[in-house]
């Protein structure tokens, strides 16, 4: 049960209920679709760039609480960051949920995104947490579709 409350923390449940930046960006500079064909999660991430800076970022789609909360907090975090900073966060986040980065002992810039570290105890849910990040990364690299199967 403690692992469960670690996964479904208050913040995650709240973002699931009221996802931030849950909207389309019309004529976005970049967008990409993320799918998890195994479970049917699907979302689209929109990015507006100003030079190298993420001026606006938003998402739409359907998914579980973990994928929705992760997407919501991702948009809050990367807004105003440079492309390079966003990519570094993607690497760190990915590393954290796949066990490559111990957020408590190793240096990182994940801040409050660290609450997703609990997902590592639920291997079937790792892709839920990382789907939006993969999709953002694809959008930043000009790819249009990403799949996390």
């Amino acid at each position: 049960m403690s692992e469960l409350s670690e996964l479904y923390q208050e913040t995650i449940l709240e973002h699931n209920k009221n996802p931030r930046n849950f909207r389309e960006i019309e004529d976005a500079d970049r967008s990409a679709d993320g799918n998890n064909p195994l479970c049917g999660d699907a979302l689209r991430v929109y990015v507006d760039l100003e030079g190298d800076v993420v001026k606006d970022v938003a998402f739409k789609g359907s998914g579980c609480a973990i994928s929705k909360a992760s997407a919501s907090m991702m948009t809050q975090t990367v807004k105003g960051k440079t492309k390079e900073e966003a990519e570094k966060l993607f690497e760190e986040f990915h590393s954290m949920v796949t066990g490559g980065l111990d957020v408590e002992t190793e240096e990182n810039d994940l801040g409050r995104l660290k609450i997703f570290a609990g997902v590592i105890e639920f291997p079937a849910r790792v892709k839920c947490a990382s789907l939006s990040w993969h999709t953002l990364n694809a959008a930043l690299h000009g790819e249009e579709v990403v799949s996390t199967e």
């Binding site: 469960l4 209920k17 195994l38 479970c39 049917g40 998914g63 849910r125 839920c128």
Partner: peptide, 27 residues
């Protein structure tokens, strides 16, 4: 209502209950 089946599946699993959550290969 308002709760995704994957979240249902994960929480049930913590109680030892195995169900399938997904599209059941019937999109």
């Amino acid at each position: 209502e308002g709760i995704h089946p994957h979240d249902i599946g994960t929480i049930l699993d913590q109680d030892g209950i195995a169900v399938r959550a997904g599209h059941h290969c019937a999109q």
